[in-house]
Amino acid sequence: MNQFIFGFLLLIFLALPPVAYLLESIMIVHMHMQMPLLVIAGFLMAIFFQNKFPQFFENWNHNGIPGILLFSIIMIYWMIPRAMDDALTFQTVELFKYISLPFLAGVPLRDSWQKISSKMKNAVIMIFTMIFFAMGWLYIKWPEQLCNNYLIIEQVTLGWGFLTMGVCMTIYLVYNGLVDPTAYERE
């Protein structure tokens, strides 16, 4: 329950106009800080929904795959440059951002992550790593503004943000592949 309250407070905090304004004023902070924080808010709140509607999750997310798919679709949608522009231009899209990221990405992520196998987890991370490299390349190389609201330099910065995160995830995957935990840990 504590977690739910923290998640809820985080969501409220992120929705405060000055906070939203500050975070959205820098492109990379908008995509790589505000959006993940919204997902984390949902992740924390998920407990509440899991306890309240266990049957719903059992019926619709029995093996975790639908949830992870939903999470991925929402995440990829919010990586589209156009989507960020829309969020800044239309209140309704902004509202959709504040609902979709916590409740349609954060909540299913938590429910699914416990259910899917570790191979599946690595596959998900791998797919996101590839997407991140592709997005990084796109944002760095594209010669024009992709968003009306952000300058080219911000776009390039975001691109490097994608690339460095991609590198971090690659390191994690390599570590995961090379190091066998059973050599160090007791079951």
Binding site: T157, W160, T164, M165
Partner: peptide, 19 residues
């Protein structure tokens, strides 16, 4: 722990270094 550390480093350095 090291991957988290690298993420924090990226958070701190990407913006100023690109600039």
């Amino acid at each position: 722990i090291i991957v988290i550390m690298l993420l924090v480093i990226a958070m701190g350095y990407v913006i100023p270094l690109v600039e």
